[in-house]
Design a protein around this nucleic acid. Structure first.
Lengths: 335, 335
DNA sequence: CGCGCGCGTGTGGACGTTCACATCCAGCGC
DNA sequence: GCGCTGGATGTGAACGTCCACACGCGCGCG
């Protein structure tokens, strides 16, 4: 055992070693006012020798700034949220922020409250909401959250949002199908308390309206491939449609499976469009036509916007990111 | 504007309101020594009224315990790591810990160092390594990291590991194929600087040896579906094999795509086994036989084990989690 | 009946950092 | 030559909490 003093070196240790005052060390760390280059060198050398690391907790305490961005995500391991979180972390770290991510165990009130108060206790300076379920926003309102927050959310316009324009994404999917000549287009939607699901469905309805097509009652799913499969088995017994727009690629994937089981050819008998463009989409059977979302870009923008707000800068252009339709082999003209 | 004092309430405000000393409030918060129930009630009421939240930074400072577990993950949005991280966060939060996750931008030395020192600066009490690339461990050694750490790693036995026995997983995959009668079995491996990839390949080689089958030079992949696809196109030109074991489901999925392009039937012409059992695996064409990993369970165990170590308890049984072969429709007898 | 013990509570410090202000010294202009 | 300026550095206090100890009081036991 060491002489029982495994205390990490602090700013005073560094100061002593460099022969300066602790304040000078602090100044070097925060490269604030002018320091004689020679003094700075001495301090840096001392830091190096002692393996000193600033204590973030002490910093946070005295500045009352945690330099932490909270992230609330759904407990889903899906490609989208996971990609976004990684991008957020990377962008935040580059700016000297860290993130604290929580994953909602369920979408009920208690779970949301728990996540939120956990983040607030850490003194997060800002919040990113990825699990953009409606209830999360209600909770934010209710707790009168004062920190700036953004949602990687569905619709543009409604303050606090880094929009990926999912309505437009839905519209493009439907327009593509309509242009191919489909008239009976079904929608397998996501859970309706998700703003994304809602927006994609609105895009579906809008585009049908624009094309003078009959809207059909959407099937409300749960984002999973399994749902797509079982819903597909059910739906295909009627087969009163020629195209399906699924609210995400997983459900589309499940639906493709159901088509195979039913002996139907895609896109010969049924056209299928997904949403997200997960990396697997290009290799499904058949390769899936889908709407591409750039989750990483959205994550980066969220951070950028929050940091601007924290610095008191006017929020820059809030243009929604345009969705991009990726046409592959799961769509064709109906016969 | 408020009378410019938006300072969050602190322990002394609560004390004043409840008519006790700040120390009593602290005791209530840490429910330490006995407190008269009536006093406790008064304190809790005051906390409620003021909307008081303990300042974690101050706590961390004075106790010199950050109650933070650091996580180092690869910059991949794959199902496995994402699931594990979510599970780790949930488990840690339940125990009063928070996590700080970093995502490696690349696998080079600088990136690893940067992540690591970032986490250490936050005073993490423990580390979970998910991106179990060999270089990460080298960096841990080199920086003489003193906090306990575990890797959600490949092989059992080698200290610091919460093992999911991937060697055994690989063996089971191959045994399954061998029992079906396959003798020419190919392996599409993962990047060899990943311990997981290495372990799965060792399982492959071991099982071949046990079955007295000829090992074949593995194809070294990068975990992606695209790689599986292009490698598949190449490999299928020879077709000197009847079965393929891919080191993860994504590469298997890409390989299935290649088989379709080549006009081959799976499992009629080629059998395919994957690894991980991603949620999509059951709905691929055909549904994929694969080795199931319970990422969430591994994540929970990692947290459990680290907390035991932090509490000074002897580490509990370190048995590797047994992998489970899930047989679906992508494997059959060769003809 | 007095002493001690233990329950319930209060007081002073410390954690490591930054902020506001004080100080020192050299150089310069009048 | 003296005071003033401003660059470079030092000093005291504060952030919000927990730990170690001190204290007062009532009760039980000898």
């Amino acid at each position: 055992m060491e002489p029982d003093k495994p205390r990490a070196p602090n700013i005073r240790d560094v100061a002593a070693r460099a022969g300066v005052s602790y304040q000078t060390v602090s100044r070097v760390l925060n490269d604030s006012t002018a320091i004689r280059p020679e003094t700075r060198q001495r301090v840096l050398a001392a830091i190096e020798e002692l393996g000193y690391r600033p204590n973030e907790a002490a910093r946070a305490l005295v500045t009352s700034r945690s330099r932490t961005i909270g992230v609330i995500s759904a407990q889903t391991a899906y490609y989208g949220p996971a990609t976004a979180i990684a991008a957020i972390e990377t962008a935040a770290r580059r700016e000297g922020y860290r993130i604290s991510a929580t994953y909602l165990a369920s979408s009920d009130r208690a779970s949301i409250q728990s996540s939120l108060s956990y983040l607030l206790a850490q003194g997060v300076e800002a919040l990113v909401v990825i699990a953009s379920q409606v209830r999360v926003f209600e909770a934010l309102e209710e707790l009168a959250v004062t920190v700036p927050y953004v949602a990687l959310a569905a619709t543009t316009g409604v303050g606090h949002r880094v929009a990926f324009d999912q309505i437009e994404g839905g519209r493009r999917a439907i327009r593509h199908l309509a242009e191919l000549g489909h008239t009976e287009i079904l929608h397998i939607a996501g859970p309706q308390d998700w703003t994304e699901a809602d927006a994609r469905m609105r895009g579906y309805l809008q585009a049908l309206d624009e094309a003078d097509l009959r809207p059909r009652a959407p099937v409300l799913g749960d984002w999973t491939a399994s749902f797509g499969y079982y819903a597909g088995l059910e739906l295909l017994r009627m087969r009163d449609f020629t195209a399906v727009f699924a609210a995400n690629d997983q459900m589309a994937l499940g639906f493709l499976h159901a088509c195979r089981d039913a002996g139907l050819d895609v896109p010969g008998d049924v056209s299928v469009v997904g949403f997200d463009d997960i990396p697997e989409a290009a290799h499904l059977a058949p390769p899936l036509t889908t709407v591409r979302q750039d989750f990483a870009e959205v994550g980066r923008r969220a951070v950028e916007r929050l940091l601007q707000e924290l610095r008191g800068e006017p929020p820059a252009d809030d243009a929604a990111i345009a969705p991009e339709l990726v046409v592959r082999a799961s769509t064709a003209r109906p016969h």
